[in-house]
Nucleic acid binder design. Structure first.
Lengths: 163, 163
DNA sequence: TATTCCGTAAAGTTTAAACTGAACAAACTT
DNA sequence: AAGTTTGTTCAGTTTAAACTTTACGGAATA
C-alpha cells in the first residue's frame, strides 16, 4: 500500500519530466512522439523493447517502430544486445548533450551545404546568360550565399568550441 | 520581344532563388509561405503591399496577412510608410543574417528558460516529497537541467561572438 | 453622410502529418 | 516442418496545419 502509493507518485514525477523535457527536445526538430520516446528511454535504467515503449506511451507499436528508427538515424538512441533476448532492446545514448548537438549541427550543415550549392548554381546560370546580366539579382544572390557562409561559420563554431 | 523574353528569364531566376533560399529559411522554424514571402520581399527593390505579395505567391490575401504578421513578430520584416499610400507597405529587414540569428536565438533562449524553470519546479517537488526521495530520478533531473544550462551557453555564445 | 477600400476575423475546406490495425516476411521455437 | 514471435510494410483513418472565401469594422474618399 505504501509502496503502491510511492510508485504512483514516482510515475507522476516521471510523467511531468516527460511532458516538460520533451518540449525542449522538440526544438531539435523531433516530433512529439520521438521526443517523448527519447525521454522515456532516458529515464529508464534498463534498455526497453518496442512493447515496453508502447505501454509507456500508450501508442501503437508501429508508431514506436517509426519513431525509434528516426532516433537511431540521429544517433540519439542505440540498439543493445542481451543474451537470449528475442526482442530488440534500445537505450538512450549516454552523452545526452553531445549527441543532440551533433545531430542538430550536422542537420544544419548538411542543409546549408545543399542550398548553398543550389544558389551557386543559379549564380552560374545568370552569369552565362548573356541576354541580361541583372546586377540587382546578382547582388542579392551574392548576399544570400554570404548568408549561408555565415551560417556555416556559426554551426562550425558550435562544433569546435562547445562539446 | 527581347525585353519580354528577358523578363521571363529573370522571373525564372527569381523563381529558383525563392525555391532554394526559402528552404534554408524554413530551418529557422518558418513555414513554407513565411519563408517564400520573406525571399520575395528580400528580392524586391520596392516595398510591397499585401496584394503585390498575393500576386507574387498566388495565394490568398489572408494567407499573406497572417504570414506577414509572424514575420513582423520575428522582426524579419518591417512596415514602411509612404506618402499618400493607403495600403500597408512591407519590406525585408536589411541586416539579413543578424535579424534571423537574433530571432532564432531568442526563440531558443525563451524556450530553454521556460522548460528549465519547469524542471527545477519538479526537482523542488521531489525534494519536498518525503515519502520517497528517489535518487535515480533526481539524478536524471539534475542532468536534464545541466543539459538546459549547456544549451543556454551555446546560444548565448552565438549572441556574443557571431554578430 | 454615404460609399469605397483595406486589413483582419470567422467559418469552412483542403492538404499533409501522425497514428492505428491488419497483413506479411523473417527469425526463432518446438 | 508447423507454429510462434517480432519488426515492418501497407492501407485506411484521425487529427492538426494551411489555406480560401465570405463577412465585417475602421479609415479614407467623395
Amino acid at each position: 500500500m505504501q509502496t503502491r502509493q510511492s510508485e504512483e507518485a514516482l510515475d507522476h514525477f516521471h510523467h511531468n519530466m516527460i511532458s516538460e523535457f520533451s518540449k525542449t527536445l522538440e526544438m531539435f526538430s523531433l516530433n512529439t512522439t520521438e521526443s517523448q520516446l527519447f525521454v522515456i528511454l532516458y529515464l529508464s535504467d534498463e534498455p526497453m523493447t518496442l512493447d515496453d515503449m508502447k505501454n509507456s506511451l500508450g501508442k501503437s507499436k508501429t508508431a514506436m517502430s517509426n519513431s525509434i528508427r528516426t532516433l537511431l538515424d540521429y544517433n540519439l538512441v542505440e540498439r543493445v544486445w542481451k543474451k537470449g533476448a528475442r526482442k530488440d532492446l534500445y537505450q538512450a545514448e549516454k552523452d545526452l548533450f553531445g549527441q543532440f548537438m551533433k545531430a542538430y549541427v550536422n542537420r544544419w550543415l548538411d542543409a546549408i551545404d545543399r542550398q548553398k550549392s543550389s544558389l551557386k548554381q543559379i549564380e552560374e546560370n545568370i552569369k552565362s546568360d548573356e541576354l541580361h546580366s541583372d546586377q540587382q539579382t546578382s547582388a542579392k544572390l551574392k548576399e544570400a550565399i554570404r548568408f549561408h557562409d555565415a551560417l556555416e561559420d556559426v554551426f562550425n563554431d558550435i562544433n569546435n568550441n562547445d562539446f
